[in-house]
């Protein structure tokens, strides 16, 4: 029995696939790859899979996480290659590593920070966006409405926004780097931040790309690739194959 974590990319070709559909897609790819998936016990045996926080529909990302249990161990590199041969274009496992099998159900329960690159190409200048960002960050509270339909709730977004940084990336494109809370204890959606900044998002002028998933409880790291690595290290350091 062995547990593996894969970091994968959800790219341009599949950014309109919902999280539920993506889960089914990955599960089918694993079956095609002939992975020795460990199944749950009971009437309706299912592979034991867990997934990191879902991406919003239409967003891309290369910090996406999934965990799987195999009945027999495999080389992580081999697992990655087997799976990549069976993934539709737009999906790719970027790396895989083995983690100790642990009892906790929520493998990714500690992931609580997400980092997004939000690309804005509506002609807005850097300074203006910078001003709006400062205004936002200086606010005491940022109430937004959620729930669309029935019990509509009000959520304060301010404590859920950790940082926002603006930079110019091209003649007609500026980039907003957003570090946001995510996960079961409450999170901000990148779309909500864009709405607060009044960026007139009809999907054409604003694109979302998730660059990192982090566990703020883990040790810090300087490595490029985001805080998910901190979390990874934290996990690994508890396992046998600790490297730090």
């Amino acid at each position: 029995m062995a547990q593996f974590i894969c970091r994968y990319q959800k790219g341009e070709r599949v950014r309109w696939i919902s999280h539920l559909d993506l889960k089914r897609t990955l599960e089918r790819a694993m079956r095609r790859a002939g992975l020795p998936l460990e199944l749950t016990k009971g009437h309706n045996p299912r592979p034991k899979l867990s997934f990191g926080p879902p991406l919003p529909l239409g967003a891309t990302g290369d910090a996406e996480l999934l965990a799987l249990h195999l009945a027999e161990p495999l080389e992580p590199e081999g697992l990655k290659q087997l799976l990549n041969r069976q993934l539709p274009s737009g999906l790719e496992v970027l790396e895989a590593w083995r983690v100790p099998v642990h009892q906790k159900r929520e493998t990714f329960g500690q992931v609580d920070v997400a980092e997004y690159k939000i690309m804005v190409s509506n002609g807005l200048n850097e300074e203006e966006l910078g001003n709006r960002v400062s205004g936002l960050m200086e606010s005491e509270t940022l109430p937004v409405r959620r729930g669309g339909g029935r019990p509509e709730r009000e959520v304060d977004l301010r404590p859920l926004i950790i940082s926002l940084a603006v930079s110019r990336t091209g003649p007609h494109e500026i980039e907003l780097q957003a570090r946001l809370r995510t996960g079961s204890h409450g999170g901000a959606r990148p779309q909500e931040v864009v709405d607060l900044l009044d960026l007139n998002d009809d999907g054409r002028v604003v694109r979302y790309h998730r660059t990192g998933l982090y566990a703020s409880a883990g040790p810090p790291t300087q490595r490029r690739g985001g805080v998910w690595r901190r979390w990874t290290r934290a996990r690994r350091s508890r396992g046998k194959d600790s490297e730090s």
Partner: peptide, 18 residues
Amino acid sequence: MLLSRVTKPARYTNGEWN
């Protein structure tokens, strides 16, 4: 973007396995 304005955009995106 057109696909952000319709329900179930995956109906129109193709690229399915096989």
